[in-house]
Amino acid sequence: MVSLDGINKAFENRVRLGIMSVLMANGSADFVTLKSLLNLSDGNLASHARNLEDLGYVASEKTFMNRKPNTTFHITDLGRTAFSDHISALEKLLKIQLNG
């Protein structure tokens, strides 16, 4: 998933980048919060979240609130490292392009 210059393909998608940004800042967020912050449909958020979960960047936890299912997403240590590596790679690219 990681290309030569350190850019992580998993984060090239806007939705996945958004999910990771929110989780990076808050540690965890529930489904409804993420949906309204990122302006997404249920299905769209669910499929991208599952994608990140398969990569091990995000963990989900399903609980019931007033008998309604409520999913909370957490960022994993692997996800944190992967995301900050991605940001550093972006910074490096930017610096090279500014200087070159």
């Binding site: 980048l17 958004g18 940004s21 808050n26 912050l37 990122l38």
Partner: peptide
């Protein structure tokens, strides 16, 4: 965009 989302969410 990342910065914006991080600020807005927290």
């Amino acid at each position: 965009e990342i910065r914006n989302l991080m600020e807005r969410s927290s």
